[in-house]
């Protein structure tokens, strides 16, 4: 069986075709970074306007790349939430009506389930159950995963997502939106130990996160210091170290609490090399292992939506003729399959 996946929940248009036996046959991603850079963040209306221009051309390209036509497909999956409602509706309306026109089942997909299952697209696949850290510009959450649709929320950010804190601190350091990856690059030349940032909410039990205070701490440090090139790098280093440490402490706590040894990380921030190294370290110490998708499937993409859609398609979970977008959609309300 083969399925087309459509992702338009935020500022990236992602399209892919997944084959149950052969894996991803083709995928394309169009990033809107240039559209939003002048505003220092995603402008929802501009995101929607761009998706409605890019979705069909990318679908054409993906079909051509895979040398397939509609006759070779068995379903159409699209992100139905959570995300920006206007942006979601572009993918939902196109995906649902394509399925109608092709006379195929339509499968609405939960964006975070897509991220969560993205490591399944790799050769080394984790067995259930495992603990997943979903960490991006929009989300930071720890989830216990016992099977597809069997998700227990262990903890999440009470304010900014980790990626959001990265981007906001990067902005304070004069980096262009989205500055997270550039901040990580800047941190490479930073000196360890010059600044010490707090590890928020690690001094108490629980698995929730808070990252907005770190951004404020960075702002105060930048305000106090003579900001030369080295100081920029040192602040970047200390900030990244604090985020990585905080995430690692909570991941370790979650693994111990669940008595599990497999950790999955996904979402844009899971591409961060320091975070990967740190989590490799802590899981190794516990005799466990960390699993993650290749970097291009860490950020938003169509491949993960096609994969998650295939699981629901096989279970016979289809949409009727409506195509509701759900901007806020708790992961643990999904049905198990």
């Amino acid at each position: 069986m083969r399925i087309l996946g459509i992702e338009t929940s935020c500022d990236e248009t992602g399209i892919a075709i997944y084959d149950e036996k052969e894996g991803i046959l083709a995928h394309r991603l169009y990033s809107q970074i240039a559209v939003h850079a002048d505003y220092g963040g995603v402008v929802p209306e501009l995101a929607s306007r761009d998706h409605v221009r890019k979705t069909i051309p990318l679908i054409k390209e993906v079909l051509a790349d895979a040398k397939l036509t509609a006759k070779d497909l068995d379903g159409v999956a699209y992100t139905a939430g959570p995300g920006l409602v206007g942006a979601l509706l572009v993918g939902c309306s196109i995906g649902r009506s394509l399925a109608y026109g092709w006379n195929l089942p339509a499968v609405p997909v939960h964006h975070m389930e897509g991220h969560l299952l993205a490591p399944m697209l790799e050769d080394d696949v984790p067995d259930f159950p495992f603990v997943a850290l979903l960490v991006s510009g929009g989300h930071t959450m720890l989830v216990r995963v016992d099977g597809i649709g069997q998700y227990e929320l262990l903890g999440e950010s009470v304010d900014d997502a980790a990626g959001e804190a990265f981007d906001k601190t990067a902005k304070l350091l004069g980096l262009d939106y989205p500055g997270g990856p550039a901040l990580a690059k800047m941190a490479e030349t930073g000196k360890k130990g010059r600044f010490k940032f707090p590890r928020p909410m690690t001094d108490r039990p629980g698995l929730d996160f808070s990252f907005s205070g770190l951004k404020t701490f960075a702002a105060n440090t930048i305000h106090k210091e003579e900001m030369d090139k080295q100081t920029h790098a040192d602040v970047a280093y200390a900030f990244q170290e604090a985020v990585v440490d905080t995430l690692a402490i909570k991941c370790k706590r979650a693994l111990l609490q669940c008595e599990l040894k497999r950790l999955v990380i996904a979402g844009g921030v899971s591409a961060n090399t320091e975070l990967r190294a740190k989590l490799e370290q802590i899981t190794a110490k516990l005799g466990g292992k960390v699993y993650y998708p290749r970097p291009e499937f860490c950020t938003d993409n169509g491949a993960m939506i096609a994969y998650a859609g295939m699981q629901r398609l096989k279970a016979g979970v289809f949409a009727d003729l409506s195509f509701k977008a759900t901007p806020r959609w708790p992961l643990d309300t999904l049905a198990a399959i």
Binding site: V52, I56, G86, G101
Partner: peptide, 19 residues
């Protein structure tokens, strides 16, 4: 309405491309 216009057009794009 921006969103309404795009819902109509999204559906039209999907129908037109598929058929």
């Amino acid at each position: 309405s921006f969103t309404g216009v795009r819902i109509g057009i999204g559906v039209v794009q999907g129908l037109a491309f598929s058929a």
